[in-house]
């Protein structure tokens, strides 16, 4: 009994929202088709998991997110670290990453479609462009705060620049890099869905628009739940990797 009460108190807000939702459904203020009950959404969700449509589209989306994100990481981390090391590169790159930060880069997507075509290329490039900013910025601040003693002792023991990068800067900055990853990855998911919604013929964003056009609101909501779970899982995975491998 006590456990139930505790549970209710803890999740009071969610329970209230669910009750409110069901209240709307029962009051039939809106047509069922447009405002389905929670039970129905869950049912559709389970049904949807068994269809191949969902998984093939999701596969395409995951592929785009991962490639865009990995490219951003591969390019962004060295840029961030080099910016913190050389004032010349810092001067050169700082305007791009500070002044460019508030500019909505997705707006360039129509241009990328012309450059890279309607397929994955334009989406991956947009994801890359949006992901690289948080990664560079947090790598930069992380690398700036790497203890100088480590760098000096590394240099003192005759480490080359390359060795310094792999053995001192990269491990020293890893926690901040993961902070950047945790900001960048959800952005990647959003941009993937967004660009697929604007123009695409596959991917989960396209699937959403397609379902919405057939006016099956419960299916749309089920896909929304699916994407949210995916985003949540991705974040958990990132946390797991960080805790497992960045133990220092």
């Amino acid at each position: 009994m006590k456990a139930i009460k505790k549970f209710i108190v803890k999740y009071l807000a969610l329970i209230l929202i669910a009750l409110l939702w069901q209240g709307f459904v029962l009051a039939e203020l809106f047509p069922r088709q447009l405002f389905p009950g929670l039970g129905e959404i869950l049912l559709v969700f389970v049904e949807l998991l068994a269809t191949s449509d969902l998984w093939t589209n999701m596969g395409v989306t995951i592929y785009r997110i991962l490639i865009g994100f990995l490219l951003a990481a591969i390019v962004g981390i060295p840029i961030g670290i080099q910016m913190s090391r050389s004032s010349f590169i810092d001067d050169l790159m700082q305007p791009i990453f500070t002044a460019g930060y508030p500019i909505p880069r997705v707006a360039l997507y129509p241009i990328f479609v012309l450059l890279f075509g309607l397929g994955s290329g334009s989406k991956i490039f947009t994801i890359f462009l949006e992901c690289i900013f948080p990664i560079v910025v947090s790598t930069y601040y992380g690398a700036k705060s790497v203890n100088h003693l480590y760098v000096w002792s590394g240099q003192n023991m005759g480490a080359t620049d390359r060795k310094l990068f792999w053995k001192v800067f990269l491990p020293g900055t890893m926690p901040s890099i993961f902070t950047g990853f945790r900001i960048a990855l959800p952005i990647g998911v959003v941009i993937a869905v967004l660009t697929e919604m604007i123009s695409s013929n596959n991917g989960i964003g396209y699937f959403l628009v397609y379902l919405s056009a057939t006016l099956s609101q419960s299916k749309v909501l089920a896909v929304v739940i699916f994407i949210s779970l995916f985003g949540y899982g991705l974040d958990r995975l990132l946390l797991y990797v960080r805790n497992r491998y960045v133990y220092w």
Binding site: V220, L221, V224, G231
Partner: peptide, 24 residues
């Protein structure tokens, strides 16, 4: 009161809700 709301709704990519809102 708000903690579970944040942890439940924050991971939703809000753009995915656009088709839902469009219908409503």
């Amino acid at each position: 009161f708000f903690d579970p709301v944040v942890s439940f709704f924050n991971p939703i990519p809000k753009i995915a809700l656009l088709p839902v809102f469009l219908v409503w």
